[in-house]
Each structure stands twice: as structure tokens, then as C-alpha cells.
Amino acid sequence: MEILIFAETDDKGNLKKDAFEIASYAFEISSEKGGSVNALCFNASNAESLSYYGVNKIINSKNEELKNFDPSNYSKCICEVFNNEKCNLILLSSSSNSKYIGGMLSVLTDASYVTNVISKPSDDEKMRVVRNTFTNKAFETVEIIKNKIILAISKNSFGLKENPVKSEFVEINFNISESRNKVKSIDRATNKVTIADADIVVSGGRGLKGPENWHLIENLAEVLGGATACSKPVSDLGWRPHSEHVGQTGKPVSSNLYIAIGISGAIQHLAGVNSSKVKVVINTDPEAPFFKAADYGIVGDAFEVVPKLIDKLKEFKAANE
């Protein structure tokens, strides 16, 4: 199986953790089924680090015109490399940008496309993979019909595995067409960890009573180096921006640690956090449904527990530095 991974960079040109995760996944498939792993990245400043994760051929295109994400140009470039390298499998991450191009790319390459993938492909006569579905309330086994395949791998479902190899480095140039959609401006809170990238997410619900109390959530997130999130009513009430609302109708969270404070744990909220590894709940009501979904819980008042937790975590961090 000849594999191409699309190794995404952040806005500073550094490869994202997702890129190493899909490289780790690709390496395991190639060592089981043969074939090599190719990676395509655009203007990556640290492309060589893909060698640690088993990528045999690292193709980096240094092109100003590819600095900003552009779905039609990006998918054309990926398709071109896919064809030139005679690959049969493309791996994408589950980031917004990768998912943006996945559907387009599958048409361009005439491939079967599966998203939210959480398993390696099986060895059945027709390849099968397992994916998350029904907003994390079930797993689905999908059979792949075409011999060209695109899989978008669910974040944190596989983890990082170092497999140092000697890689070949290639620079490549593309003919870039004029963007069909023009980016006018970007509004982004700088220096803030995003929910999509965070390993730890600290989330607050209506139990926090009002936006003036959000320093509790923010300070806890800061000590942990995590992102802040909230339940839907909190964003509906305008206490927090809509982009922070997690759940079935909001953002999915697949962090390592999810801390829910003053959130009751309604089914629509839990659907968005089910794929987080470890869940902690802090709630005054021992009957709150979140306690059934959580791994660890404190029955207590957020206004007393959270400040103490922040202090103790600072001590813990200082001792473990």
C-alpha cells in the first residue's frame, strides 16, 4: 500500500501534532502491509521532523502562494502528488481544513472516502475500517469499495509513535491558479489554545452563574495549558462566544482530559465529549447525569473547589517542573 499523508502546518508554518499522529498511523499500516509512506506539506519549517515518525519521502513545497489555506489549490496539489507517486491511500487529519478538502479531494482522485476513522484498515478481502458515528454514540464498520481510498483519522484515536527512519527530501513546485474564494481578513484570538488542538479542555456550564465568574475557568485552563469551552446555554446567553460551545450541535472535543464544571451532562452535551479520554466533573448535585459519564468527580461547589484546585495544581506544577 503506497500512502500519502497530508501533513498540515499551523499559521506559523510548524507541523501540527495531527500530522505526526497520521504519520504514526501510516507507518503501522505500511509495516503491516508493505509499501512506503510519503508526506506532502506546504512551507513547513520543520518538515524533517516527519522522519521520526516513519515517513520515507518528505515532499515540501515552498511556495508563497500556498501560505494561506486554499481548498481548491490544496486539493489539486494533493491530487497531483497522489497520482505522481502512484499512491492508493491518502490520510488526512480531522482538522477543519483537512475536512474542508476531504470531500473535494475524494471526487478529484475518484476515491472512497471515510471520515472519523478510529481503527486501522482490516485485512478482509474488501478493506474495512471502524469510525465514530451518531455523534460518538456508536461505532460503525464501513466496507471500502474503490481501490483508491481517503481516510480522515479521528484526533487522539491513535496517538504518537516514534519510528525514526532515513527519509528522502523532495522539493516540489506547483502551478497555482488564482483562488476562487479570497480571504479578506482573519479574526483570531492569538496566544489562545484552541479546543481542536488542546490536550486539556476546561469547560463551564450554567452552574457558574454568570460571565463575571469565568476567571475560574480561564485560570484553571491557564495552569493546565488547556483550552476553555462551555455548554450550549452559556453561549446562547452570550456569556461566552459561540465558538466555545461543545456538544452535539457545537464542537466535538477529543482531548486527553475534559473537566466539566457546573455542567449537568445532558445527552446533547455528552455526545460532544464522549470521545475525550478522561472526564472529570465538578458539580453540587450528586444526581447530575454527568457523574454517570465521568471517570472522576467531585460533588462540591465550583466557587470553593476550583480556586483550591488551581492552587494545588500550581504547587503540583512547581514540584514537577
Binding site: S106, A111, S112, Y113, V114, R128, T133, N136, K137, A138, F139, E140, T141, V142, E143, I144, I145, K146, N274, V281, F291, K292, A293, A294, D295, Y296, G297, I298, V299, G300, D301, E304, V305, K308
Partner: peptide, 22 residues
């Protein structure tokens, strides 16, 4: 169609929460 859904499975029920005193 280019993919076929074969079967579904629900996640294993979770173990009990570990409670910690405040």
C-alpha cells in the same frame, strides 16, 4: 455508492465514577 455500512456497535458501558471529596 463507494462505501458500504456493514455493522454498528455501541460503546461499552463505562465503569463507576471515582468520587473525590472536595
Amino acid at each position: 455508492s463507494v462505501t458500504h455500512s456493514k455493522s454498528f456497535e455501541k460503546p461499552q458501558p463505562k465503569g463507576e465514577v471515582t468520587l473525590v471529596s472536595p
